[in-house]
Design a protein around this nucleic acid. Structure first.
Lengths: 124, 124
DNA sequence: TATAGAAGTAGTAATTATTACTATTTTGAA
DNA sequence: TTCAAAATAGTAATAATTACTACTTCTATA
């Protein structure tokens, strides 16, 4: 993989925030520094960076993909009112994989869980 | 809600299978009975049926939505090789919601979990 | 039973998120 | 320095779904 200024800046931006931005948000933010960067470049690089586990792609059902610079395992919670995504730093629930494995008698590789919450702001 | 032959047939089909079909699969199947049914009608009715909890919409990350005629709570497992979706009839893990609730001190409404597996066919 | 108008449909166009394409530019090993 | 491989900008294409519109079907009521 050859160096590029665009990819460096994309990674730097993703690592600097905890807001789980979409590709489009990354694009509009980076245009402040690299005015003629293209949306395709952002998509392509986020793709490659997540392939190489430098960022995490969070696929939400029915919504744009979001990206997370924190590659340590954690869960995500999404507010059903405002859509904000919060990190949940708790251990991986390996016991539920075992339970399911027993049920289907096939290998369980992993699980993806999103918690639907009402965030403190929206609860007022 | 007014009766329609199309909606009746869509519901009947969904209730008769356990294959978790996509809207498009429902469409191609129903064309055998109602040759000029339109894809938009299938989408609209699956939408309404799931709004009214007569069917369950399963939103997979990065894949087409699938529909399930079984409205009793259960989990789903998807084979990472062939994409087949299997029902997992085990109790809802309410304890993990409580754990997360404690962590974020906001109300947890529910969680959505998909298990990534290798099905028995693909394991050979 | 006839009918009016609300709700539903078929067929098509539009939208949204993402990926693909292409001509040009950048990178880095020799 | 050079030059081919890899990356980019800008645009076109794709895929899933939703929206629109003219026509059809239901069904409550006269």
């Amino acid at each position: 993989m050859k160096y590029s200024k665009q990819r460096e800046q994309i990674l730097e931006y993703i690592k600097s925030v905890t807001s789980h931005p979409t590709a489009e948000i990354v694009y509009t933010q980076l245009r402040k520094k690299i005015p003629n960067i293209s949306l395709g470049t952002v998509y392509r690089n986020l793709d490659r960076l997540s392939e190489e586990n430098n960022v995490v792609r969070i696929k939400f059902s029915g919504a744009k993909d979001r990206f997370d610079g924190n590659t340590n395992h954690h869960y995500h919670a999404v507010c059903i009112k405002c859509g904000e995504v919060t990190d949940i730093f708790i251990d991986y629930f390996s016991d539920i994989d075992k339970k399911v494995e027993k049920y289907i008698s096939s290998k369980v590789i992993s699980h993806n869980t999103i918690f639907n919450i009402v965030c403190s702001k929206c609860n007022k």
